[in-house]
Amino acid sequence: MKIAIFSSSNTIFTYCYIKLFESIGYEVKLFNNNDEYRCNINYCVNYKKKVNSNFKRNIKKIFKIFHLTRFLNYLVDKRKKNNSLSSEELNLLSEELIKFNPDKCFFFWSTLFKSEINLISKILPQVENIISVNTYPIRSDFETFTKNKFFESDKRIFFEIQ
Protein backbone atom coordinates (compact mmCIF):
# COMPACT_ATOMS: atom_id res chain seq x y z
CA MET A 1 0.00 0.00 0.00
CA LYS A 2 1.23 3.53 -0.80
CA ILE A 3 0.77 6.65 1.30
CA ALA A 4 1.61 10.25 0.41
CA ILE A 5 2.43 12.38 3.44
CA PHE A 6 1.85 16.12 3.16
CA SER A 7 3.80 17.98 5.80
CA SER A 8 6.76 20.22 6.47
CA SER A 9 10.12 18.50 6.38
CA ASN A 10 11.43 20.59 9.27
CA THR A 11 8.90 19.08 11.70
CA ILE A 12 10.21 16.13 13.67
CA PHE A 13 6.72 14.65 13.88
CA THR A 14 6.75 14.24 10.09
CA TYR A 15 9.60 11.76 10.40
CA CYS A 16 7.81 9.96 13.23
CA TYR A 17 4.81 9.43 10.96
CA ILE A 18 7.08 8.29 8.11
CA LYS A 19 8.69 5.70 10.39
CA LEU A 20 5.28 4.64 11.70
CA PHE A 21 3.83 4.09 8.23
CA GLU A 22 6.97 2.33 7.00
CA SER A 23 6.93 0.03 10.03
CA ILE A 24 3.45 -1.20 9.11
CA GLY A 25 4.47 -1.86 5.51
CA TYR A 26 3.45 1.29 3.63
CA GLU A 27 5.51 2.70 0.78
CA VAL A 28 5.89 6.37 1.71
CA LYS A 29 6.44 9.55 -0.26
CA LEU A 30 6.79 12.89 1.53
CA PHE A 31 5.40 16.02 -0.12
CA ASN A 32 7.23 18.85 1.61
CA ASN A 33 5.25 22.10 1.80
CA ASN A 34 8.01 24.13 3.45
CA ASP A 35 9.22 26.90 1.15
CA GLU A 36 12.45 27.53 3.11
CA TYR A 37 13.62 24.15 4.41
CA ARG A 38 14.30 21.61 1.65
CA CYS A 39 14.54 17.91 2.33
CA ASN A 40 16.95 15.78 0.35
CA ILE A 41 15.80 12.27 1.18
CA ASN A 42 15.07 10.12 -1.87
CA TYR A 43 11.31 9.89 -1.27
CA CYS A 44 10.70 13.61 -0.79
CA VAL A 45 9.13 16.06 -3.24
CA ASN A 46 9.78 19.76 -2.57
CA TYR A 47 6.86 21.20 -4.49
CA LYS A 48 6.72 24.73 -3.03
CA LYS A 49 8.77 27.44 -4.66
CA LYS A 50 11.84 28.24 -2.59
CA VAL A 51 11.52 31.60 -0.86
CA ASN A 52 14.55 33.77 -0.20
CA SER A 53 14.79 33.86 3.60
CA ASN A 54 16.87 37.09 3.51
CA PHE A 55 14.04 38.78 1.66
CA LYS A 56 11.53 37.56 4.24
CA ARG A 57 13.75 38.72 7.10
CA ASN A 58 14.18 42.19 5.56
CA ILE A 59 10.44 42.59 5.00
CA LYS A 60 9.82 41.70 8.65
CA LYS A 61 12.39 44.29 9.77
CA ILE A 62 10.77 47.01 7.67
CA PHE A 63 7.32 46.22 9.07
CA LYS A 64 8.76 46.23 12.58
CA ILE A 65 10.38 49.65 12.10
CA PHE A 66 7.03 51.13 11.08
CA HIS A 67 5.15 49.22 13.81
CA LEU A 68 3.19 47.25 11.25
CA THR A 69 3.90 43.72 12.47
CA ARG A 70 0.25 43.17 13.37
CA PHE A 71 -0.70 44.05 9.79
CA LEU A 72 2.01 41.73 8.45
CA ASN A 73 0.63 38.90 10.60
CA TYR A 74 -2.82 39.63 9.19
CA LEU A 75 -1.48 39.40 5.62
CA VAL A 76 0.38 36.16 6.34
CA ASP A 77 -2.72 34.62 7.95
CA LYS A 78 -4.88 35.70 5.03
CA ARG A 79 -2.42 34.19 2.55
CA LYS A 80 -2.36 30.93 4.49
CA LYS A 81 -6.16 30.78 4.56
CA ASN A 82 -6.35 31.31 0.80
CA ASN A 83 -3.36 29.02 0.28
CA SER A 84 -3.33 28.92 -3.47
CA LEU A 85 -0.62 27.11 -5.39
CA SER A 86 1.16 28.52 -8.42
CA SER A 87 0.65 26.77 -11.75
CA GLU A 88 4.24 25.48 -11.51
CA GLU A 89 3.54 24.01 -8.06
CA LEU A 90 0.24 22.50 -9.25
CA ASN A 91 1.92 20.89 -12.26
CA LEU A 92 4.77 19.40 -10.23
CA LEU A 93 2.39 18.16 -7.56
CA SER A 94 0.00 16.63 -10.11
CA GLU A 95 2.82 14.92 -11.97
CA GLU A 96 4.36 13.44 -8.80
CA LEU A 97 1.01 12.31 -7.39
CA ILE A 98 -0.04 10.60 -10.62
CA LYS A 99 3.36 8.92 -10.89
CA PHE A 100 3.28 7.70 -7.25
CA ASN A 101 -0.45 6.82 -7.36
CA PRO A 102 -1.04 6.61 -3.58
CA ASP A 103 -3.83 4.65 -1.91
CA LYS A 104 -4.00 7.20 0.91
CA CYS A 105 -2.89 10.76 1.54
CA PHE A 106 -2.00 11.83 5.07
CA PHE A 107 -2.14 15.56 5.82
CA PHE A 108 -0.24 16.70 8.91
CA TRP A 109 -1.33 20.18 10.06
CA SER A 110 -4.16 19.92 7.59
CA THR A 111 -5.39 23.52 7.63
CA LEU A 112 -2.48 24.43 5.36
CA PHE A 113 -3.40 21.97 2.62
CA LYS A 114 -6.72 23.17 1.18
CA SER A 115 -5.36 23.53 -2.37
CA GLU A 116 -3.58 20.19 -2.22
CA ILE A 117 -6.71 18.38 -0.98
CA ASN A 118 -8.79 19.99 -3.74
CA LEU A 119 -6.24 18.95 -6.37
CA ILE A 120 -6.12 15.34 -5.13
CA SER A 121 -9.92 15.16 -5.12
CA LYS A 122 -9.89 16.12 -8.80
CA ILE A 123 -7.00 14.02 -10.14
CA LEU A 124 -7.18 10.98 -7.81
CA PRO A 125 -10.78 10.79 -6.52
CA GLN A 126 -10.35 7.20 -5.28
CA VAL A 127 -7.63 8.19 -2.77
CA GLU A 128 -8.57 8.18 0.91
CA ASN A 129 -7.56 11.44 2.63
CA ILE A 130 -6.51 11.33 6.27
CA ILE A 131 -6.39 14.68 8.01
CA SER A 132 -4.38 14.91 11.23
CA VAL A 133 -4.26 17.83 13.63
CA ASN A 134 -2.50 16.12 16.52
CA THR A 135 1.19 16.60 17.15
CA TYR A 136 2.41 13.21 18.29
CA PRO A 137 1.14 9.64 18.20
CA ILE A 138 0.05 9.63 21.85
CA ARG A 139 0.74 6.58 23.96
CA SER A 140 -1.44 6.99 27.03
CA ASP A 141 -2.26 3.49 28.20
CA PHE A 142 0.55 3.27 30.75
CA GLU A 143 0.31 3.67 34.51
CA THR A 144 3.46 5.80 34.66
CA PHE A 145 5.96 7.32 32.28
CA THR A 146 8.60 4.76 33.35
CA LYS A 147 6.32 1.84 32.42
CA ASN A 148 6.08 3.02 28.79
CA LYS A 149 7.61 0.10 26.88
CA PHE A 150 8.04 2.36 23.83
CA PHE A 151 10.09 5.00 25.67
CA GLU A 152 13.47 3.85 24.32
CA SER A 153 12.27 3.48 20.73
CA ASP A 154 10.51 6.86 20.90
CA LYS A 155 13.68 8.43 22.24
CA ARG A 156 15.69 6.93 19.34
CA ILE A 157 13.17 8.27 16.80
CA PHE A 158 13.42 11.81 18.22
CA PHE A 159 17.18 11.95 18.73
CA GLU A 160 18.61 9.81 15.92
CA ILE A 161 16.85 11.53 13.01
CA GLN A 162 19.31 13.31 10.75
Rank of each mutant, 00 (worst) to 15 (best):
E36R: 14
E95G: 04
P137K: 02
E89Y: 04
K50E: 05
N129R: 07
N82W: 07
Y47R: 10
S8M: 09
R79V: 03
T14A: 09
I12T: 14
F55V: 12
F108T: 02
R38D: 00
Y47C: 10
F31K: 09
F21M: 08
N34H: 10
K48H: 09
E89N: 04
F100W: 10
K29P: 07
S8G: 11
F150Y: 09
Y136C: 02
F71I: 11
I123L: 01
C105I: 01
D154G: 06
I117P: 00
F100E: 04
I130Y: 12
F151V: 02
L112E: 13
E96P: 13
Y74A: 02
N73P: 00
F100V: 06
S84P: 08
K49V: 13
E22D: 03
Y15A: 02
N42R: 15
V76Q: 11
D35Q: 09
S9N: 07
K56V: 15
N91L: 15
E22F: 03
Q126M: 10
K29T: 08
S87R: 15
F150N: 03
S132D: 05
L20F: 10
K149P: 00
E27M: 06
L72A: 14
N83G: 15
F113V: 01
N58Y: 14
K155R: 09
F100G: 01
D77K: 15
S9H: 00
N10L: 06
R139K: 06
K78N: 07
I41H: 09
Y17R: 13
I24A: 05
L92M: 14
F142W: 08
N46S: 10
N42M: 10
I18E: 05
N129M: 10
F151I: 06
L75G: 06
F13W: 02
P137H: 05
S23Q: 02
D77T: 12
Y43R: 04
N52T: 13
F63I: 03
N118H: 01
P125W: 00
I12E: 13
F151E: 01
T135E: 02
S121T: 05
I41N: 14
W109H: 08
L92S: 10
I41M: 13
T144A: 01
F108R: 06
C44E: 06
Y15Q: 03
N73S: 13
N52L: 14
